[in-house]
Amino acid sequence: MNKYNGSVKITLRKGILDVQGKTVEHALNSIELYMISNVRIGKYVELTVEADTPEIAHSIVTEACKKLIANPIIEDFEIIII
């Protein structure tokens, strides 16, 4: 059994208005950083997972995301296993 470090990036699903992201984008524009757009704010989770292979670790974290870490109705998630 190996130990893998994993990270999960969770954002609101595309198409759902991210009011926090929009507010930050407006603030950035107001300090003349007009070149920045499409700001989206999400959550970041770090974890350690015991598994035989990185693929199995990935599938375990996927299950964790679907069951608890993310809400698929409103959120997308991306997993990185190192």
């Binding site: 609101l12 208005l17 009011v19 507010t23 409103i74």
Partner: peptide, 10 residues
Amino acid sequence: PGALLRNQNL
């Protein structure tokens, strides 16, 4: 069904 998001005015 559905979900409860952050209030639109935050």
